[in-house]
Design a protein around this nucleic acid. Structure first.
Lengths: 151, 151
DNA sequence: ATGGTTCCCTACTTGTTCGCTCGGATTCCC
DNA sequence: GGGAATCCGAGCGAACAAGTAGGGAACCAT
């Protein structure tokens, strides 16, 4: 259950774009510098986001990237899906495509619940994260001091 | 965010052991057949579980594997951690080791919340899954019909 | 129209992980 | 001792991850 570098970078770039969404386009170089990401690597990620319809771009002198939709309507989950495929998969397949037998029968339900939980958390919008105003449900999860400790 | 084959297989094997926990040791071959897993591959996984203290084993004629502790006290999360390392990591590091700046500042809180959510779901015990009696909170998550659809 | 700027695309590298197989050594009980 | 099981390590092909490199194509200002 790991978040890849691509996904992490993509979300951070999207947050930068969300913060600057009314200030004109942002250059890849500027985003890369602002977040400490390799510029060329980021370019590839932004390309995926463009193909996925999340951002738009313009070349030339004062070109750059901007969000295709308002930051309030784009979720973190969407960004991750765009660059990394399905949010959660088991053995490379999406949960509903699996089937278990014997004592493992309700394992499928557990994977589904896991995915639903993940979706709930990552359903927050870019605007909410960028403005540091996470919904109460998320804050409640992160408020438990135990959540910050490694087992 | 993918569950590896190792993790999936490990949990399924653990469930088989949970279901047979008072019926003496179970051979790797029997587990493999019961769940449709490659026998030799499973052996490696069971070896990890033994090193992690989750199962015990005995060689020879009527040897096999059994759970080291009652199935009620072993969580699915423990099994996964045992064979796959940390439950959720970002770019190979555990969330508390990260730091973000600018508009991405509260992304860390989001990752922490994500991990907390995952822990909550995967905190169920082997006994509960094997007996198909998941806690109400999990069932509630999986009850939403939308949780079963791919986006 | 020309130049500088920026995105766009393809290919390549390098290292690691995944999923799995094979062969043999060791230990156990009868 | 002998059969049956676990144990252990080596290896392997394919895929993936993270990043690098270089050039082509569009855009704008002058």
């Amino acid at each position: 259950m790991r978040i890849s570098a691509r996904a992490d970078y993509a979300v951070r770039a999207a947050l930068q774009l969300a913060a600057a969404q009314d200030a004109g386009p942002l250059k890849a170089e500027a985003i890369a510098e602002g977040q400490g990401i390799s510029h060329k690597f980021l370019e590839g990620i932004l390309g995926d986001m463009r193909k996925g319809g999340l951002v738009q771009s313009q070349r030339g002198g004062n070109g750059g990237y901007w969000l295709a939709r308002p930051a309030e309507s784009i979720s973190v989950a969407e960004v991750i899906r765009c660059v990394d495929g399905p949010l959660v998969s088991v053995r490379g397949e999406r949960p509903p495509d699996l089937s278990y037998t014997g004592p493992a029968e309700s394992l499928l339900t557990l994977w589904i619940a896991l995915r639903a939980g993940v979706r709930e958390v990552l359903g927050v919008s870019l605007a909410e994260v960028a403005a540091a105003q996470l919904p109460a449900g998320i804050v409640a999860l992160a408020d438990d001091p135990e959540a910050w400790t490694n087992p």
